[in-house]
Structures are given as C-alpha cells and as structure tokens.
Amino acid sequence: MKIVVSGGGTGGHIYPALALIRTISKQYPATEFLYIGTERGLEANIIRKENIPFAPIHITGFKRSLSFENVKTIYRFIKGVRDSKKLLKKFKPDAVIGTGGYVCGPVLYAAAKMNIPTVIHEQNSVPGLTNKFLSRYVDKVATCFEQVGQHFPQNKVILTGNPRASEVVAAKKIGALQSFGLKEHVPTALIFGGSRGAKAINEAVINSLSHLAKKPYQVLYVTGEIHYENVSKEAELLGKFDNITIVPFIHNMQEILPSVQVVVGRAGATSIAEISALGLPSILIPSPYVTNNHQEKNAEVLVNKGAAFMLLEKELTSKRLVETLDAVLLDDAKRKKMSEASKELGMRDASIRLFHVIEELVQNK
C-alpha cells in the first residue's frame, strides 16, 4: 500500500503522523509513504531526519480577522491544490491522511477531488478550522475525543485515539530516572511546560522549590531551553536539592513517562494521549494562548473522569501547585483511582485502529 501523510506547523500535528508511519512500517513493512508539508513548518526538519520521503508545498493559514493576507492565502490554496495534484499523480497513493495544520487543506482537498480515499485526524476536543473545512470532502474523520464528533458529519466520524499513544506504551527504559540523578522507586512528578517551556509554570515551580525539597517524593523539572539558564541561576540561590533535578529539555520523553507517577504540564492533545495511554494521573495547566481555548476543553475531559486536576494559569500559585502535588503523591488510594480513570480514557492501539480505517476505505473504493 502507498500512503500520503500530511500535517504540519506544530509538533501536535507532526508527532501523531510520525507515530502512525512508524507503527504501520513496523507492522506492514511493504507500505510506502510520502509526507507532504511546508518548508516553513517544523515538519520539514523532523520528517527529513526520519528519512521519510518529503515533498513541500507553499501554503499559509487564514487569519481569523479581516485581512488582505486572506486574499493571498486563497491564491496560495488554489496553487497548493494544483501542486498537490501533481504530487499525488506522480506518487499514486492508495490513501491520503491529514493530521492537522493548514498544509492539510490543499493536500486533502486535492485527494478528495481525485477520488482517492481520504481521512483527517482531529487530535483535540475542539476542531481546527482546516479539519472543519475538509470534513465536507473527506471520507472519514478520525477523532480522539468523543465530544468533538458533533462538529463533523456523523456518518464520517470514527473514534480511533491518538497514534502517539501507541508509541509511548512500549517505550519504557530501565534506569530512566537514574540517568537524571533520581531514584527509581520513589514517587516522582514530571513537571514541564511544553518544548519551549512556560513562564508561568516556571515561576510557580521556582517559588515552590524550597517546599518541594522537603517532600518524600521527587521532581524532574523541565524548564524549556530558553528558560533554563535563568531558572538554574535562581535555583542555585536557593541551594542544592537532592530530590529535584532541573533540565532544559528531554529528548526521550516517551522513555521517561512510564517511570513517573504524576505529570504536571499543558493540556495539548499529544500530551493527553501519552498520559492516558500510560494511565498516569495529571495536573493540567492549560495554555490560555491557544485557538478556541481548546487546551482547557481537553483538560476538562480528564478532570470530569477523575483522571486529572486542572489549575488555570491565572490562578496558578506555588501554594496551589504544592498542595495539588501532595494530594496526588501523598495519597496512594487517590493516585490509584486517578490512574485507573486515566487508563480508561487511553487508546493504546490508536495507530492500528487508524490504519484499519484507511485499509477499509481502500478495499471499498
């Protein structure tokens, strides 16, 4: 089978696509892939480093306010459709899947018009503009949250989960915490604010360090590379903490997650997929700077199931952070209950589910 994958802009669109490609390649080695993205997005470097065939098109997203740029975007979309059709005619895919981001617009639209089986994958609990537009033309809409299905044609929606979940389940590394100077059998909190870090989370954690140093649990604290130097300087003024390790970034996050007992961080779709796949309790601090406030809505799904606590950034203080960490890490019964609730939401076989959707469409075409 030959599959075109498209998705870009942010890691939240790219890593699920990459996880899908890896899983399918492992299960069905004869499958051929072509990834269509943009040179400006993160996907250009990430996909090429994985030695996956990559073809770029030029496209930009629509502004949500009236802007002359939107006229240019319409022109780029039309050209993007023409360029996509050329790539699709040359590669001759059996199916095309889009994992989000504006680059999917012309690619999936072109594929649908060429009568190629098409699937879009919506990771969040609130649909993106591109996916809402494409849902009128594609064959299937794969989702990760049940409630997002109401925004799409009901006959097209199928709940598959996030492919990223499939990867993280099998990735545990022995001695992962020891490599960060922490103990393997002590309850551990992983605190991070995304790949670039989050200023508000960093401020709350810095103000909590002296309190956390006295706890019977330990903390692996990821600052984000741009914040690391300043955070390290402030931490040094407070002294040395045997149960706290501060790092700028973790490249092998999928190997670390299975070794921790609670995750503190943002509520992006990929993070939630990883957390729930492993059955981890979480303390979610949604980013208030995302479209349609979708991270808060993502977090609410876990909170309503009893799998997470939510702290809004505007209400985040060191006192509330420490109290919430204590509520999870110092109460074994509570932590176990949250873990079970989290695991119920997890969909560990998401990549295979998604491939079966593609496979069925190809067979029925």
Rank of each mutant, 00 (worst) to 15 (best):
G194M: 02
A213M: 10
I206C: 08
Y221K: 01
S210T: 13
N202K: 08
T223D: 06
V205S: 08
K214E: 14
S208G: 07
L212Y: 09
S208I: 14
F192N: 04
E225K: 09
H211M: 11
G194S: 03
G197K: 11
A200F: 05
K199M: 14
V205H: 07
L212M: 09
V219P: 05
E203C: 06
G194T: 00
K214Q: 13
G193N: 03
N207G: 07
G197C: 11
H227P: 05
S195V: 02
K214R: 14
I226M: 10
E225L: 11
A200C: 03
E225W: 07
V205E: 10
G193I: 00
A204G: 05
R196K: 11
L209R: 00
G193D: 01
G224H: 00
L220N: 01
L209S: 00
Q218M: 06
L209W: 00
K214I: 06
L209Y: 01
L212K: 05
L209D: 01
A200G: 03
I226V: 13
I206L: 09
F192Q: 03
S195I: 00
V219E: 07
S210K: 14
K214G: 04
G194E: 00
A204D: 08
Q218D: 02
A204Y: 05
A198Q: 08
G194H: 03
L212I: 14
H211E: 14
H211N: 12
H211Q: 15
I201K: 01
K214C: 06
A213Y: 12
S195P: 06
L212F: 04
H211K: 15
K199D: 08
Y221E: 04
Y221M: 03
V219T: 13
A198P: 10
Y217T: 09
V222F: 03
E203N: 10
Q218L: 04
